[in-house]
Nucleic acid binder design. Sequence first.
DNA 1: TAGCTATCTGCAAACAGTTGCATCTGTATT
DNA 2: AATACAGATGCAACTGTTTGCAGATAGCTA
Lengths: 150, 150
Amino acid sequence: MTMSDYDELIHSLRERGHRLTPQRRLVLEALQHGDHHMSADEISQTIIAHYPSISVDPTTIYRTLRWLRDVNLVSETSLGQNHMVYALLGSDDHHHLVCENCNGVIEIDPSILEPVRRELQARYGFAARLAHISIFGLCARCQMGDAVTR
Amino acid sequence: MTMSDYDELIHSLRERGHRLTPQRRLVLEALQHGDHHMSADEISQTIIAHYPSISVDPTTIYRTLRWLRDVNLVSETSLGQNHMVYALLGSDDHHHLVCENCNGVIEIDPSILEPVRRELQARYGFAARLAHISIFGLCARCQMGDAVTR
DNA sequence: TAGCTATCTGCAAACAGTTGCATCTGTATT
DNA sequence: AATACAGATGCAACTGTTTGCAGATAGCTA
């Protein structure tokens, strides 16, 4: 996303009554800084590390992340752990294959789901939001004997 | 699932060290009784309604549901609410299109994801567990103006 | 530049679900 | 029928996340 795209986006959000508060800027900055998926707690720690004098309430971080997800700026993904992870959308998009046995994660090209997206739109008129989703199952190694033996 | 299938299943689970306790029977019975997806709390309420004298600890219900999911007897699905819902596998299998705006759920034929399952196995050797999954997005009605306006 | 108001924040309390641990029990073995 | 023990249960404490509410503030309007 270019800078002018970003400005335009903020402007269009403002027009719809959304506000760009210091807290929201800090969360966005943290997400830009950490280039991988981040948990709410990692975002909080990143803000504290960069601005020790500022404190952002965890509730606000959660609410900001939900807002960013709702306006399609970040993805929210479960990787089989006890917390969600978040990532800025628009570059390095991919999906995840999560092994339920060894907890390993394989990142895959998002194009594999394009036919499904098209069919859902055609058949049901449904616009699927398929961004950074997880597909759970068993990886090649864990399939041997383990699907039953676990 | 026929009765002998069921007996066979229990037998094979026992062989692997799993036990069929009264609590587990009650959870299974509740799932058979309610024909739709049920939350842990609904299962608890159903047990209380049928057997007022027996109490099953919520922790045990959660652990039983996780076990049933791990041995592939029930599905665990998020329908966009703040809790998971569970269903017995094997009949009436389907997937869900969940509208993030109006929270409506459309049930769809599971065959739509078969090509994806095959490709994941072929390309990555990954055995996807695609049972009663949810795909989030916007339904036809909510797409008009709402994808942006929300 | 000050005022207005819908939106946002922080705090406390709540909620769904998980974990640690001591005790109990289903089931195989004798 | 009695024994033994891996595996299951119940309780309490904890985790990640959400919600209710009162006070604060972004950003429009004059």
